[in-house]
Amino acid sequence: MSLFLLPGEIEELTGLQQCSAQRRWLDANEWIYQIDVRGRPKIARIYFNQKMTAQKVTLTQELSNYSVNVLALRRA
């Protein structure tokens, strides 16, 4: 599975085929995206899932699942 929505998925989301029209729709609906060299909007799949399910996951919540093994960082 791609990290970004596929062009067909963005078309399904917006209901629009032209990249410029898709970008206008995304702007009007306050979506975060990047534009690739072809002018196509790129939307991270994780952002899409969060936005569509109204989940609010912060970086702090994601990082709290990890811990640092300090002993592994010590020199022998």
Rank of each mutant, 00 (worst) to 15 (best):
L26D: 08
G39F: 02
G15F: 09
W31F: 10
M1W: 02
A28S: 06
Y33D: 02
Q17R: 12
V68M: 04
R40N: 14
R75N: 08
E9W: 02
A44R: 01
I35Q: 12
L5N: 01
G8K: 00
R74L: 09
V68L: 12
K56N: 15
W31Y: 07
S67N: 12
I46E: 14
C19E: 14
L6V: 08
I43K: 00
L5Y: 00
Q50C: 07
E12G: 08
R24C: 06
Q18Y: 13
N69K: 04
K56T: 15
S2K: 11
F4N: 04
L73G: 01
E62T: 11
T14Q: 12
R38T: 15
L63V: 12
R45M: 15
L6T: 09
V70Y: 06
L16I: 13
Y66S: 07
I46Q: 10
Y33G: 02
A54G: 00
E30T: 08
L59D: 15
Q55C: 10
Q18D: 15
V70G: 00
A28F: 07
E9L: 02
V70N: 03
S20D: 13
L13A: 05
N65H: 09
Y47H: 01
L3M: 09
L73R: 04
V70I: 07
G8N: 03
E30H: 05
L73K: 04
E30Y: 05
P7G: 01
L59G: 09
M1K: 07
E62F: 10
G15S: 13
E11W: 00
Q50Y: 01
L3E: 14
L5P: 00
Q61T: 15
A44L: 06
I10L: 02
L13R: 07
E9C: 02
N69R: 04
L26V: 06
L71T: 10
A54Q: 11
N65W: 09
L73E: 07
F48W: 14
R74V: 05
S20N: 11
R75C: 04
C19A: 10
E11H: 01
A21G: 10
W25M: 05
N29L: 04
R75M: 05
I10V: 15
D36M: 09
W25K: 07
R24G: 03
E30A: 03
T53C: 01
Q61L: 13
E62H: 05
L63G: 05
T58H: 12
L16P: 14
S2A: 09
